[in-house]
Write a protein that binds this DNA or RNA. Structure first.
Length: 321
DNA sequence: ACCTGTCAAGTCTGG
DNA sequence: CCAGACTTGACAGGT
């Protein structure tokens, strides 16, 4: 099994390289000259995109082939206050430069629209803004010139007092999405509501690949074993041109089991990897540790010393079958 | 330069 | 039924 590792959005190792600088809505409203305020938003977006490219170069230097873009690249976009504002044409060259670099180096990238993007909601207004958000993420990826191996990953959403009804509503709303959005969507189990088994059932019903989060599974399950579910989860990726992806992180403490620790427990992750290795050829692991790329490098260092693990490059390992 | 409080979003819980 | 918790990085305002 060949396993690649990646991290999310920000770096602890590259200084002043945030891809998610913003302006608060309050701050925006306080500015007397609206055109100047909009220009400032566009300038911040340009800096976020430039920093994203810097991070990709940093990733390349460390053989990190997996990266999740920040969903806050363009501050306040999608908000009612700036509904008339479309900075994407002027930002297109910056998006294109990012995509060109990703393609040139064969990286796997994607987004994780935040948990206010919900397809299970009973509220029409929330559904409408969620669909608009998904379309906007597709637009980003298209501006980058990335094919549909680059996806947005979301959760099923809230239960609203009736989880089965919420799942059914999710499926109905999913079915009505346009193909461009559908082709670029993956679904992930969450830490409070939809378990891995429940998320898998939805994935199988609508035909979406499932991202298994093994930390979420640990704190939200009905007794089922993630390794037992794995063959079905892996099957949701058949027909895709990228390997299955999982999320990995470790609990901060016994008192705060859901919170993400700074670093990833190598032994715990390795147990899962070894368990699925016999039936898995390739796997991508997105680390969701607070220490971001520093956690990734430390994990790689720890894995290098493990028996049966062969380092392939700075952020890829092979395990014996 | 640093510290504390606030900000955005939608759902869910506690009172 | 409404206020606060949840989550996250960064802004905003204070010292």
């Amino acid at each position: 099994m060949l396993v690649r590792f990646g991290y999310v959005a920000m770096s602890l190792l590259v200084d002043n390289a945030s891809p998610a600088k913003t302006m608060t809505l309050t701050g925006f409203r306080k500015l007397p000259d609206r055109d100047a305020a909009l220009r400032r938003l566009a300038r911040i977006a340009g800096e976020n995109l430039a920093n994203t490219l810097r991070l990709l170069r940093h990733n390349k230097a460390h053989d990190i082939h997996l990266y999740r873009f920040s969903s806050k690249l363009v501050p306040l976009i999608g908000h009612g206050d700036v509904a008339d504002w479309d900075p994407l044409p002027q930002l297109a060259p910056a998006f294109a430069a990012i995509g060109a670099y990703v393609r040139e180096h064969g990286m796997r990238t994607g987004f994780h629209p935040d948990h206010f993007t919900l397809l299970s909601t009973p509220r029409e207004d929330v559904l409408a803004s969620s669909i608009a958000d998904l379309r906007r993420h597709v637009r980003y990826l298209e501006l980058m010139g990335l094919d549909d191996t680059a996806k947005s990953n979301i959760h099923i959403g809230g239960a609203y007092g009736d989880k089965a009804a919420a799942a059914a509503r999710f499926c109905g709303n999913y079915a009505r999405l346009d193909d461009g959005v559908k082709r670029r969507l993956t679904l992930e189990n969450d830490d409070k509501t939809f378990t891995a088994a429940e998320t898998l059932a939805v994935c199988e019903q609508v035909g979406a690949p499932m991202v298994l989060d093994i930390h979420h599974h640990m704190v939200n399950h009905d007794g089922e074993d993630a390794v037992r579910l794995w063959p079905r989860i892996a099957r949701t990726w058949s027909g895709q041109r990228v390997p299955p992806k999982i999320h990995a992180s470790s609990p901060r403490s016994e008192r705060e089991p859901r919170a993400h620790a700074d670093y990833v427990d190598a032994a715990e992750l390795l147990r899962f990897l070894r368990a699925i290795a016999p039936e898995t050829e390739r796997l991508d692991v997105m680390l969701e540790a607070k220490a971001k790329d520093a956690a990734l490098l430390r994990l790689m260092e720890e894995l290098r010393g493990e028996p049966g693990i062969v380092p392939v490059d700075g952020a890829t390992i092979a395990t014996f079958r």
